[in-house]
Design a binder for these strands. Structure first.
Lengths: 147, 147
DNA sequence: TCCATTTACTTAACATGTTAAATAAAATAC
DNA sequence: GTATTTTATTTAACATGTTAAGTAAATGGA
């Protein structure tokens, strides 16, 4: 109220992104929780499933996590026997991470239900809208400011 | 690798939303941090600035926070003297929250820099794209699945 | 009226987000 | 070749996200 020129909170892009994401995740989260995975653990496992054995930095980048978060998540997943870590022989700073056979099976099963939910969302939202949205989101993520 | 039919992680809507949001917040967060606010504290204060005195549930809804998070955030803001809480006289379950004069001034100042950043982002991204994006995000947030 | 239910928070417990600092190994610069 | 800088990851500290359970006040019947 102190500034009539301030954009309404409803028009805020960060909040709109947050709400849209929350609406989508509300459909997925219960499916993952039923199998004992958090959203982030699932992202990590999907990336490993898609890319095979990669180092922690690449894994963090591809799964959109910060390294400190990834460190903790990998500890948990390792204790559960879902992933394995080995030091890179050439570069001993690096840790190479990969799925275990056990988790590969678990992922395939969990993926069935998440894919079904994804198709339903795409049905409701429209494939056209979905492509357009992904395109805009990618453009927005590229925006660089001067300075 | 276990399922050739699984959507690539790059095509994941939740991750695309997360990356876009992170790209935008990377511009705002330092501006808020310079004034000692987190992103969430700032959301709360902006809502209060826009709507005046409202109860915790409405505040949580408008600022896109869960109530447990809001409870903690309000404790912090109250200790800092940024907000005040009073019990609703009619309904003693409710707490009415409002800004202090002190924080109203602080918000007006911080808003100058965030608004400038917002305009820059809109310049780069395009007002047309921005409107289209907000429209799609709103549509996506509305999607309901059967069952 | 009374009790079961609902509503509005709050607390608790554990996972993740964010920033800064620490550590160890590799790469670079003299 | 050794000191310096950079890179990869971890640890620490504090804030928030998420779910479940707890508490107190209002509501809605029998």
């Amino acid at each position: 109220m102190s500034d009539a020129g301030m954009r309404s909170i409803k028009q805020s892009v960060p909040i709109a992104l947050l709400r849209a994401r929350e609406a989508v995740m509300a459909h997925f989260r219960p499916l993952l929780a039923a199998r004992g995975y958090t959203e982030q653990q699932w992202r990590v496992m999907r990336v490993l499933d898609e890319f095979g054995s990669i180092d922690a930095s690449q894994l963090a980048d591809k799964s959109a996590l910060l390294l400190p978060s990834l460190t903790r998540i990998l500890q948990t997943l390792e204790e559960e026997g879902a992933i394995a870590r080995i030091k890179d022989a050439q570069d001993k700073r690096r840790t190479l991470i990969s799925l275990t056979d056990k988790s590969r099976d678990a992922i395939a099963k969990a993926a069935e239900s998440t894919q079904a939910a994804y198709r339903e969302i795409e049905d409701q939202f429209g494939a056209e809208n979905m492509n357009q949205l992904l395109d805009l989101l990618d453009k927005l993520a590229q925006v660089k400011l001067r300075k």
